[in-house]
Design a protein around this nucleic acid. Sequence first.
DNA 1: CAAGCGTGGCA
DNA 2: TTGCCAAGCTT
Length: 356
Amino acid sequence: MSQFSQDLLAWYNINKRHFPWRENINIYHTWICEIMSQQTVISVVLPRFKEFIAELPDIQSLANCSDEKLRKLWAGLGYYARARNLRNGAKYIIDELNSVFPNNKNDWLKVPGCGPYTASIISSICFHEPVACVDGNVIRVVSRLLNLQSGVWEKSGQDKISCYVNGVISNENPGDFNQAMMDLGSIVCKKQNPNCTLCPVQNYCTAFKNNSVEMCPPVKPRKNFQNEDVFALIFLKKKSDEFFLVERNKGFLNKTIGFPLLRAEEAVSLSILISEIKKFGYNTKYLQGNFRHSITHHKITGHTILIETPHHDDHFLKMLRFFSFSEKNQWISKTHLKQNLSSSLDHKVLKILSSI
DNA sequence: CAAGCGTGGCA
DNA sequence: TTGCCAAGCTT
């Protein structure tokens, strides 16, 4: 084992963070926690992971999980395709792999929702395959170790980083090595105010020697946020007290179920939108209390419009097509609304609805 | 390949 | 309050 790995692992054995999925190695638990942790802070993951495992303790229960239960377990976690891919992955492993988990990186890569990072971390932890994972922590740590002040956000730079960590990863304990790199990034080699004096691999750090830690990694190029107005339409059949939900088929929150949304760029403007809806003979009411919501690169101001539709409505289908709302839709009683929603955006709409 | 995709929590 | 961002994957 390289001296670097020895020093890193010695530090890890004393300083590692304790998570439920680190107590006893379990392939299913490792898979779930890694998917759940993608682009998500661990403090948010922890309670959700416990709930998920309690409700869906094994791959069979995940594969058989209802849409509604999956929505509930993933509500508020974002990137909802992760949850759908997870269940698809369970079905794939059961149907195509005879219920046997893949035991190497290449085969994990074929599992829906598993990319290079996830396939590497699972294989290294559960099957001792010496494949290094590259996540945001590793990029930052290696960028400092090698004093990389540019290029690390491009594929070529990340290939270089991958090459480096794969060169120093421990063959005896690759899982701990990968987790140690990430814990080091999280605890010591932090983005801001790194604790270089506590660093177990300070001797190997070129940026530390050059006094250029602050320059590594370079600032990640970020797209500007875009301000945008979104209209959430609440169709209500007053007689039966039912509300209309659609499975969204494009754009924001694609394939999640919720209130029909129109982005201002599509709906043109509030006044035009309302006049169009009125053409179908409906009463509309603009609900006070806009909501704010952020989706990657978009700052959304939400407007909520309540639309009363008759119980027997000849125009509804025409209206759906006019606005290109999905044909996958349903009327839901008010008491069952909450459990059918995933996105926080819909919960904000629901809150406005509940307050009138 | 670069763009697009969610959200809770914290500075 | 506002801005920033975290254990990436898919298209």
